[in-house]
Amino acid sequence: MPDVHSSAIVHSDAQLAAGVSVGPYSIIDANVVIGADTKVGPHVVIRPYTTIGERCNIFQFAVIGEIPQDLKFQGEETRLVIGNDNTIREFATLHRGTAGGGGLTQVGDGNLLMAYTHVAHDCSVGNHVIMSNAATLAGHISVDDHAIIGGLSAIHQFCQIGAYAFVGGCSAVARDIPPFCMAIGNRAKIVGLNLVGLKRHGFTSATLEALKSAYEILFASGLTLKEGIVQVRQRFPAEPAIHKMLQFLESSERGLAPIDVRENRSHRGKE
């Protein structure tokens, strides 16, 4: 049975699985589903049409599933879906989708959303993503698995952040950041590969060398991006990480963040 504090307000239509705990003064609205063993701290607000998975830990004063901050929103039945094993810290805000953006904001599994983070309408956050304190996603953003977004950073709407990318603190990201890359600044520029992060995640030396070579060809050879993609694909036809990188580059609609050539020269191949 759920463990609900006597001061909490839980709508009779909310569905709380076994092992769910709800702290003092929290409010859980109708059409909310919360999976087994999830902990909802004190003073948390969970709004309608929100689904939360199992074993999540939601800290005090978080607001989950509020309506989007979009003037076109007219009260449509849109949703927020959160997966399993997520940690959502103090004052974080996650909003429902909009009809014009597909109607769904989605957060995967195993993510850490630190204090004051914001996930706006129609965003898609993958698995094992870390958003540091006050990192902010505008609407319609995609963040792929294992990306890290530094504190006080803001991502422009419709941007994509690739898998294993690292966005430094206090950055303003206006264009896409490819997988495996680091970016920093206002406006953010790509400054090299996230080599330390990739090693920590167990990428082999062979894969790291392939990524280094591909990065040089794509961003530091003087070739156009289209020419670089052709050359990299021919050179590394069977490397999954390279395939992921090229797939991202070819699907980018907003365009890539600029390359900081000076930074790349000073950090090329270093960790």
Results as ranks from 00 to 15, higher is better:
Val63Ile: 11
Val63Cys: 13
Val63Tyr: 05
Ile64Leu: 08
Ile64His: 01
Ile64Gln: 05
Gly65Ala: 14
Gly65Pro: 00
Glu66Ser: 14
Glu66Asn: 13
Glu66His: 10
Ile67Lys: 15
Ile67Arg: 15
Pro68Asp: 04
Pro68Val: 04
Pro68Lys: 01
Pro68Trp: 01
Gln69Pro: 07
Gln69Gly: 09
Gln69Trp: 01
Asp70Gln: 15
Asp70Met: 14
Asp70Tyr: 13
Asp70Cys: 15
Asp70Glu: 15
Leu71Asp: 05
Leu71Gln: 10
Leu71Lys: 12
Lys72Ser: 15
Lys72Ile: 02
Phe73Ala: 07
Phe73Asn: 06
Phe73Ser: 05
Gln74Ile: 11
Gly75Val: 03
Glu76Lys: 03
Glu77Trp: 12
Glu77Ser: 15
Thr78Val: 12
Thr78Tyr: 00
Arg79Trp: 11
Leu80Pro: 05
Val81Pro: 00
Val81Arg: 08
Gly83Cys: 00
Gly83Leu: 00
Asp85Gln: 14
Asp85Glu: 15
Asn86Asp: 08
Thr87Tyr: 10
Ile88Asn: 04
Arg89Met: 06
Arg89Thr: 06
Glu90Trp: 00
Glu90Val: 02
Glu90Ser: 04
Glu90Tyr: 01
Phe91Glu: 14
Ala92Phe: 01
Ala92Ile: 06
Ala92Arg: 05
Thr93Ser: 13
Thr93Phe: 02
Thr93Gly: 07
Leu94Tyr: 04
Leu94Gln: 08
Leu94Trp: 01
His95Arg: 14
His95Tyr: 11
His95Gly: 14
Arg96Ala: 13
Arg96Ile: 11
Thr98Met: 07
Thr98Gly: 11
Thr98Cys: 10
Ala99His: 10
Ala99Asn: 12
Gly100Phe: 02
Gly101Thr: 01
Gly102Trp: 05
Gly103Asn: 07
Leu104Gln: 11
Thr105Phe: 03
Thr105Ser: 12
Thr105Arg: 03
Thr105Tyr: 00
Thr105Trp: 01
Gln106Lys: 15
Val107Asn: 02
Val107His: 00
Val107Phe: 02
Gly108Gln: 05
Gly108Ser: 09
Asp109Asn: 15
Gly110Trp: 13
Gly110Lys: 09
Asn111Tyr: 06
Asn111Ile: 05
Leu112Cys: 09
Met114Ile: 08
Met114Gly: 06
Met114His: 09
Tyr116Ile: 03
Tyr116Val: 07
Thr117Gln: 12
His118Leu: 10
His118Val: 10
Val119Arg: 01
Val119Ala: 06
Val119Glu: 04
His121Thr: 12
Cys123Trp: 04
Val125Pro: 00
Gly126Leu: 08
Asn127Pro: 01
Asn127Gly: 07
His128Gln: 15
Ile130Tyr: 08
Ile130Pro: 09
Ile130Asp: 04
Met131Cys: 02
Met131Asp: 00
Met131Ala: 02
Met131Gly: 02
Ser132Gln: 10
Ser132Arg: 04
Ser132Trp: 05
Asn133Met: 01
Ala134Arg: 02
Ala134His: 05
Ala134Val: 00
